[in-house]
């Protein structure tokens, strides 16, 4: 639901990912890390809703 809402206000789909990984799935964890990193890499840096004053 939050994903759909974020897309509605102009976030790229894929910025937010949810996955189920159980404790015995080390390989799945590793592959998810790679997958998510590649996806975000292809999307480029996030500019929306960035708090500039830090």
């Amino acid at each position: 639901m939050l994903k759909r809402l974020l897309e509605y206000v102009g976030f790229e789909p894929g910025r937010l990912t949810a996955r189920w990984i159980s404790a015995s799935e080390g390989a799945k964890f590793a592959s998810t890390m790679d997958e998510v990193t590649d996806k975000i890499k292809s999307l480029g840096p996030n500019t929306k809703m960035r708090d500039e004053i830090l």
């Binding site: 809402l5 974020l6 206000v9 929306k48 809703m49 960035r50 708090d51 500039e52 004053i53």
Partner: peptide, 10 residues
């Protein structure tokens, strides 16, 4: 600001 307002509304 825009960032905080967006967070507020979402």
């Amino acid at each position: 600001n825009l960032s905080e307002n967006t967070v507020f509304h979402i």
